[in-house]
Design a protein around this nucleic acid. Sequence first.
DNA 1: CTGTCTTTTCGTCATGGAAT
DNA 2: ATTCCATGACGAAAAGACAG
Length: 155
Amino acid sequence: MSPNGSVHFIPCQQRYENFSSWPRSPVTQFAVHSRNGTYIVSNNQGQATTGGMSGYQMSSPASGLSQVMDSSPDSLPSPQLLAEEASRKRELRLMKNRTAAKLYRRRKRDYVLGLETRITSIEDQNQKLKEELDNLKKLCSLGCSNHSSTLDAAI
DNA sequence: CTGTCTTTTCGTCATGGAAT
DNA sequence: ATTCCATGACGAAAAGACAG
């Protein structure tokens, strides 16, 4: 969605080729604001516009209506039939979108959870490396002092 | 316990881009 | 051109936290 026309989106399918990198859109930013830090909301979009028909809702002479027409080839479909068809299509669309939204949210949750796990793991690894570095520094300083005393004796 | 405020969850709408 | 899908935005309801 880009009401101002300035937002560049990654194609949907491309986004799922490698879900470990979701979201790929460069303009997408999220804010964590739950107690356990797992809920996110987008903050990169403008307000949703109101009014008008969405493309999703757009009626088409080629799909549902044609089915209704097919059922009575000799006459125009009755208003009741048209209404039933529209209602059926709406229910189907709502159901599909409901499912899509659930799926999308699950993916988003999993993605954030995965990131959090990765952060924990990297922090852990970082801590271990720091400790290892400290030990090596100690070892080195010991070795260096031994080495210098040997040199002193030789001189 | 109850009222109030905050956070989370869910369904729906609007929209852009891809597919047909 | 139309349909389909993914996704951000929004509002309502549910759930949780907390002071009095």
